[in-house]
């Protein structure tokens, strides 16, 4: 692995998780406040996460299996905030009853 690739890949991986986190936070906040703006911002973060994953798959020197893994987890990240939200809501409702 050449130095430039190395740094680029590491930073991309960091941004990958960060974008996933931003998506999760903004999504949760958007539903809590029923704000369309925040919701759009959250999808923007998720799209950038997908793009980062794509970039990693196309240009980084990582092995094939690792790329596959990044791509899969990029898709998985998409489900985490809505599923978590629904789970939390369900727990709250059960409790309210």
């Amino acid at each position: 692995m050449m130095p430039a690739n190395l740094v680029g890949t590491a930073v991309a991986l960091g941004l990958f998780v960060l974008a996933g986190g931003a998506y999760g936070v903004l999504y949760t906040a958007s539903v809590a406040r029923s704000s369309i703006l925040l919701e759009r911002a959250s999808y923007l973060c998720y799209v950038s996460q997908l793009l980062i994953a794509l970039a990693v798959c196309l240009v980084s020197p990582l092995g094939l299996l690792w790329k596959l893994f990044i791509a899969t987890s990029a898709l998985a990240y998409g489900f985490i905030p809505p599923v978590t939200w629904r789970l939390l809501e369900k727990m709250h409702h059960q409790h309210a009853q």
């Binding site: 986190g21 999760g24 936070v25 949760t28 809590a32 905030p81 978590t84 939390l88």
Partner: peptide, 17 residues
């Protein structure tokens, strides 16, 4: 990182609600 993300979502959820 996934469980850590879950914790953040939970904190934001609680703060928000």
């Amino acid at each position: 990182p996934l469980p850590l993300l879950g914790m953040v979502v939970h904190a934001v959820y609680d703060a928000g609600t």
